[in-house]
Structures are given as structure tokens and as C-alpha cells.
């Protein structure tokens, strides 16, 4: 066992990259790494979120806790979050919002004076740091020519009627999704195994055209298609396959087992990452790798001792880069 190397060289191929969406293939590694990355993106990539709210006056219909909860869930642009300190680790201050290393102060002061209901949105939050503001996805999209109307901008916090007032001070702090979902930068992080589909052409040719079409239609997702020219069944989108085995069942029902063979590639993953907008989806992935590395470093730091080796056993050897 000593000389076996477990080292692999995973590759990443990016398929689609936008500010809030990232799609890529992760190859030549196994589920543990893929899942570790997924878990870290959900739970451990730090962002900023409002954590403390001091309410000066609130005559809105929602009570203070309700508002505080809503404020907390507003995503805040957190590009700086990786460098910032967690307020519990910050020696310089006590997390009161005056400390530039760990907290950012927001102010909100709105009063409805008109007869129309007034929407208080995340755009009304005034930040002490111009670079750290609430995420404005709609606004960003409008800048890029997506949305036209102005009134969809911002995230609605509460609606005020005439005479109602809301005045508060909020402090955003760095945190991770494990503590509270508001700190999670991930809207969606998921992966799937890449399917490998082999059509038994010979057997397929024994089917009539109608049977082929029927067989194709048995799949709830559009994986196969009938080539209009050659009248052959071709795989158009293997990734649309949801491992539902409907086509296999159909083939069996048609009396043609083995019409198609579908495996999942054990070492190849297709990731979909969507961000809340707090950080870019691509940055989120990079941060996740960074965090995974630092976690591994933390393990590596303690491997010198005998106990660590005992504790991790073969894994320890693996950590050291495939057996010494």
C-alpha cells in the first residue's frame, strides 16, 4: 500500500460564466471532493449580512424582530468579505459598527408622507462604506439592459402608509452560512454525475419509426431525438437525463432489453452554482477552493504528531501527497 499514489489531477472546464451563474465540469476526481466543494460553497464561504439592528422608531405594520429578520436576509455585496475579520475574532473593537475590519454600518430612515403606500426597499439602506451596499440584482440587470422599469428595483422590506415611519441603524458583519443561512452566498449549488449513454444501434434498428418515437417520448426529459434525415435515434442532450430509468423500463416493456445502456461516470461532475449576488458565482467557487485548502492545511499542520497519523491512518498518508 505504501507506494500507491492516490494523487489525481482534477480538471475544470467552464461552460457558462455570468455574474450570478456558473456552470462547469469537474473531472478526474471523486464525489468527496465535489461534495466538499458544494458543502463549502453553501456553508463556509463568508459573506456580509446584517446581524445587529437598533431600531429607533418603527411605526410600520411589521414588528421589530420581523424587520430585523428581513433585513438580515438581504444579500450584501461582500467582495471584501474574505479579507475581513469575524467580529468575534476582532480584537480592535466590540463589533459596534465603527470598526472597519469587521463591521459596516447601515442607516435607514424613511417616512411616508404621501397618500400612496411607500415601499421601503434595500435601496433605502445607506451604507457607511460606498463599496458595501445591498445587492441590487434588478438594478444590475437594468444597467445591462435587462429590466426597464425602475419600480422593481431593490428588495422590499416593508410598506408604509401615510404617517408611518421607520428609522434604524443596522450593522453588517462577516459570517458563514453554517451559522445562519443569511450568510450563505449560494442560492443553488448542485452537481450531477455525467451520464454515459450507449445506444445499441443494431437493436434500435429493429424498431419501427413509430416505436422509436414512442421510445423517445417515454423519457420525461429531452435526451434522445429522432434524426429527421437518417431516421436514427441520436443522443442530443445526455445531461438532460435525470437517471429516471424510464427509457430502460420502456425498452424492457417493448421487449428489447439492452436497447440502451446508461452509466454514470463516477469521476465527472457537472456543477451548477448560482449566487445570491453577494459575491460572483465564480469568486464563490474560488473562495471555496481557498477555504478547502486552508482546511486541509489545518489538518496537515497537525500531521507531524504520531497521534494524527493514528487518527487519520491511510488518510494521513493520502494528505501528504500519496505516501512517503
Amino acid at each position: 500500500m505504501d507506494n500507491v499514489s492516490y494523487q489525481r489531477f482534477p480538471t475544470v472546464r467552464i461552460r457558462d460564466i455570468k455574474d450570478d451563474v456558473l456552470k462547469f465540469e469537474l473531472r478526474d476526481t471523486d464525489a468527496s471532493i465535489a461534495n466538499a466543494l458544494r458543502r463549502i460553497m453553501i456553508a463556509e464561504v463568508p459573506t456580509l449580512a446584517i446581524d445587529l439592528v437598533e431600531i429607533e422608531s418603527n411605526s410600520s405594520v411589521l414588528n421589530d424582530e420581523f424587520l430585523a429578520h428581513r433585513l438580515g436576509l438581504i444579500p450584501i455585496v461582500s467582495d471584501r468579505a474574505m479579507e475581513m475579520r469575524l467580529s468575534r475574532d476582532c480584537d480592535a473593537c466590540d463589533g459596534d459598527g465603527r470598526c472597519e475590519y469587521c463591521s459596516i454600518e447601515f442607516h435607514l430612515s424613511v417616512k411616508c408622507t404621501g397618500d400612496q403606500t411607500l415601499d421601503v426597499t434595500s435601496l433605502d439602506l445607506v451604507s457607511s462604506d460606498p463599496s458595501i451596499i445591498p445587492v441590487d440584482a434588478a438594478g444590475r440587470a437594468a444597467d445591462m439592459g435587462g429590466f426597464e422599469s425602475n419600480d422593481t428595483r431593490g428588495i422590499l422590506i416593508v410598506k408604509l402608509r401615510k404617517g408611518q415611519e421607520l428609522k434604524l441603524r443596522a450593522i453588517a458583519r462577516k459570517g458563514i452560512g453554517k451559522d445562519h443561512a443569511k450568510w450563505s452566498p449560494a442560492a443553488t449549488v448542485t452537481f450531477q454525475y455525467e451520464p454515459e449513454i450507449h445506444i445499441n444501434e443494431a437493436l434500435m434498428e429493429t424498431l419501427t419509426l413509430e416505436e422509436k418515437q414512442e421510445w423517445i417520448d417515454s423519457s420525461p426529459t429531452k435526451v434522445f431525438e429522432l434524426d429527421p434525415v437518417s431516421q436514427q435515434v441520436v443522443v442530443v442532450d445526455p445531461e438532460a437525463y435525470t437517471y429516471d430509468e424510464e427509457v430502460l423500463k420502456k425498452a424492457e416493456a417493448m421487449g428489447k432489453p439492452g436497447l440502451v445502456e446508461i452509466y454514470s461516470k463516477e469521476d465527472s461532475f457537472i456543477f451548477t452554482v448560482e449566487s445570491t449576488g453577494a459575491i460572483k458565482a465564480s469568486q464563490m467557487f474560488l473562495n471555496a477552493i481557498e477555504i478547502l485548502k486552508s482546511k486541509l492545511d489545518a489538518v496537515r499542520l497537525s500531521f507531524d504528531t504520531e497521534e494524527a497519523d493514528d487518527q487519520f491512518g491511510e488518510l494521513g498518508a493520502h494528505m501528504r501527497g500519496g505516501g512517503i
Partner: peptide, 12 residues
């Protein structure tokens, strides 16, 4: 249970 421990589908 934490969300990352929860099962998920390929649609997320």
C-alpha cells in the same frame, strides 16, 4: 440538520 447535509437534487 444543516442544509449542506440535506439531500439535494440535480436541479438544486
Amino acid at each position: 440538520v444543516q442544509q449542506e447535509d440535506f439531500p439535494f437534487s440535480e436541479r438544486g
